[in-house]
Write a protein that binds this DNA or RNA. Structure first.
Lengths: 235, 235
DNA sequence: CGTATGCTTGAGACGTATCAAGTTCGGTGG
DNA sequence: CCACCGAACTTGATACGTCTCAAGCATACG
């Protein structure tokens, strides 16, 4: 099979309708199909690296991706996730600055690359597309400012509870009520902004409080409302 | 003097050229002038409140404004500042969600209100304006994701050093090398994400390290490079 | 089956929050 | 102009949470 055969078409992309591309017409989608390319990544593979200039945007066809920054002495901070239908790398395009985060596959993922030229053309030609991107960046800011507040003010345990809820929103639950993504304890720590050991102890606490259950590597949510209350510190 | 007389005109606004409105033509500016209104605020007065739906954007003619969110048990978290030429309130417009932060004047400030209609019209009619706003929101995200990382990973002292540098960038230094904005210790604590007492002690430490000097309420920066090094934990 | 990697537990040190005084500052009314 | 009052600031003592380091344990994989 050639790569061409593997490359998904925008018109038939299952993620398109919930994406920023939902308002584009057939002609515009064909143009993207012509210019884009698609890459497949294994778990752990890097899609793009912080500090490099972006040459286009990436659209996640399917899979799970983390976006992280290098902080203090090389410690990773996970700042966002992306799944099917999400686009990544656009902030760097728009600000004309180097990429501010590294994108890494958490799972087998298929990611399309759309050149800068097409991206900016869509912004110029299609005000609705522009507005979609603006909506996206505005929501990003709102999420980010909430995160800043929480990082600054909440205890580690509250942040952990919040991150579990965030993971649930992003990746959903499987048939067994377990969060449907596999992250190492270290990666969870890198979301929460704490040490791996703290995550382990605090997950133990949450388990004792019957808010979650631990089944192997999987985290089962037993009491979502309880987690919400804890995360908001109604405590 | 009627308020009309007081209302500054966009065409002669000293802040316009460094603002997102720099690419608009005379006709477009006149349209804004017709529809906008201008309010004057004293130190401490609230321009808009978190949770309310925005009905337009605000453009700072002059003055100093803090944007903050309510976190844990009512504790304020300062997430951004705005000065002459900056616009605020647009994220809420774009995401069609309630305002995510409260804007408060730190000083006598003049702020123009531009109705949503005009804002969206400019986005539709003027791709360059669209791109300016996109650039702005993208930069916001990059700042925010850095802040998230720093809040999660840096020590309080490092964050304080970083915030002092941030204040310097935003408000500049006066003729005496003092940060040109008056914030209470509590407000500084609400930027750093710590207690007022910690800020006081740590400012004392920075003073002992000869990185800053304290002259009354004013903070004088003695060794900017030293602060940069400290903030980055080259320590 | 052995080795590497990730996970877990424990003990100790450190940083920061909290609470409880004082002190200084800035504005107001006598 | 001074005295007063409240708010902001400062300092100290203590407690708690979290990080770090060190060791042991489970798990995955060749």
């Amino acid at each position: 099979m050639s790569e061409k055969t593997n490359t998904p078409k925008c018109a038939t992309c299952g993620s398109r309708n919930k994406s920023v591309f939902c308002s584009l017409n057939t002609e515009q989608l064909t143009q993207i199909d012509t210019d884009k390319s698609c890459e497949f990544y294994q778990k752990g593979e890097v899609i793009f690296k912080e500090g490099v200039m972006a040459r286009g945007i990436f659209c996640v066809n399917n899979g799970k991706i983390k976006l992280s920054r290098m902080g203090q002495s090389g410690k990773e901070q996970i700042v966002r996730f992306a799944t099917g239908g999400d686009i990544i790398g656009y902030n760097s395009m728009l600000s004309k600055k180097p990429l501010s985060a590294t994108a890494t596959a958490l799972d087998k993922s298929a990611v399309c690359f759309i050149p800068a030229k097409n991206f900016f053309q869509m912004i110029r030609d299609e005000p609705n597309f522009s507005l979609k991107i603006l909506e996206l960046t505005a929501k990003n800011w709102e999420n980010a400012s909430r995160l800043i507040t929480d990082m600054a003010q909440k205890t580690t345990k509250q942040r952990l509870a919040e991150m579990l809820l965030w993971l649930k929103e992003t990746f959903g639950l499987d048939e067994d009520n377990c969060i449907d993504v596999q992250l190492s304890r270290e990666e969870i720590a890198n979301m929460v902004g704490t040490a791996t050991e703290a995550v382990i102890r605090l997950l133990g606490d949450l388990k004792k409080q019957k808010l979650i259950a631990l089944e192997g590597k999987k985290i089962k949510l037993l009491d979502i409302h309880g987690l919400v209350v804890l995360a908001d510190l109604v405590d």
